[in-house]
Design a protein around this nucleic acid. Structure first.
Lengths: 203, 203
DNA sequence: TAAACGATATACTCGCTGGTAAAATATAGA
DNA sequence: TCTATATTTTACCAGCGAGTATATCGTTTA
């Protein structure tokens, strides 16, 4: 395809959006590997071959960069939740479907950022919004568990604590799983979900 | 009891040790609430009513302060592991005992610090040591699971992944559980362990 | 062609915080 | 009492990194 150096208004808008996205991708990678504080915006810029003010041209400040990253991740989780709601089968089946997606997402770039970002590093306002978004995901998970209990496919457990237990277990790979070596995210996800839903004790 | 202002050599040694401990306690609290980077050594010193160089008189530098904190936490976990090994009953019983202690410890000050501290914030050397110590705890957990499988009290699962699943789930309260409000650490621990060992599906 | 606009870079400020030098004060022991 | 040692402070330095003022250059549009 022939690309002319003369862009239409629409093309320029798209290009700007792509660059913005590229900044976020580069940022989230560095945040995940080095940690938010250790990754400077100079580093992020350098990894893209540009200079720091370019980042400010596309995003407000470091806090906003991080907030956008976690928002991307939360959105993926939200999508997984609504997909699970439409999944056929029992409540347990739907929950399992969600859990597997949840695990896979949190092993990806933006999902991992959601897990690794603790509230204190965000500005007070962003932290509030972030908590709110996370609460939404937690709510979705609790709803699925409750449905499963209602239709008898899940044992009557403390819903709140069960949600935390499941999320906690599935969040952990975000801290150790390396995409390069060993098991695929899918394998890990499936096995963990099996352990969680089946329990340890033999039947 | 009468305390004279004139201390013996032994008393002075003890007092020094107490002050060192007080620094660690103050530090770990601030690290846990504000995060390692956001909590400055000036803050830590201020919370004790002393000045920053005093901290350096008892501990080398900020990295070492953190490392000592996580070491304290790891030691508690290690003690729990050896206690569990001597616990009577089946492999599953021993594992459950360990898991409950594990959960309670990681809701305490030093244990929480172990969970909340990601390797990147430590110096390269401290991070190596830290990983080593964590590997030891992981090894203990895997051994308990393997024993349970051997004696038939635990279903034949992937030991490595099971250990990560259990640890991940139990680590999570370190990030949200507030000691002040709601359930006690013990209650949370017990319920989570029940969910993990029993699974979600009804029997 | 001129003016406006968008994208990017250079080069800077400024605050914060880890870390230290040196002095002051107290305590212990000879 | 004098000296050595332990404890703690004040006052400082250095570096890093977030964020900004301003210039440049190309592109669009009137």
């Amino acid at each position: 395809m022939q690309t002319s150096p003369f862009r239409t208004v629409e093309e320029r808008k798209v290009e700007r959006e792509q660059k913005r996205e590229a900044v976020l991708r580069a940022a989230v990678r560095l945040f995940n590997t080095h940690g938010f504080h250790a990754a400077s915006l100079d580093d992020v810029a350098a990894s893209l071959g540009v200079s720091k003010p370019t980042i400010y041209h596309y995003l407000g400040n470091k806090d906003q960069v991080l907030f956008e990253c976690v928002t991307r991740g939360i959105e993926q989780l939200r999508d997984a939740a609504s997909a699970a709601r439409e999944h056929p089968g029992s409540g347990l089946d739907r929950l399992r479907s969600f859990l597997r997606h949840y695990a896979e997402i949190t092993m990806g770039d933006f999902g991992r950022c959601v897990i690794r970002t603790s509230d204190e590093v965000l500005s007070a306002e962003s932290a509030d919004r972030f908590r709110e978004l996370k609460r939404e995901i937690d709510g979705a998970m609790r709803a699925l568990i409750a449905e499963g209990i209602a239709d008898g496919s899940i044992a009557p457990v403390n819903v709140k604590l069960a949600a935390f237990t499941l999320a906690g277990a599935l969040n952990w790979p975000a801290r150790w799983h390396r995409t390069d070596g060993g098991e695929s995210a899918e394998t890990v996800a499936t096995q963990m979900v099996d352990i969680l839903t089946g329990g340890l004790a033999p039947r």
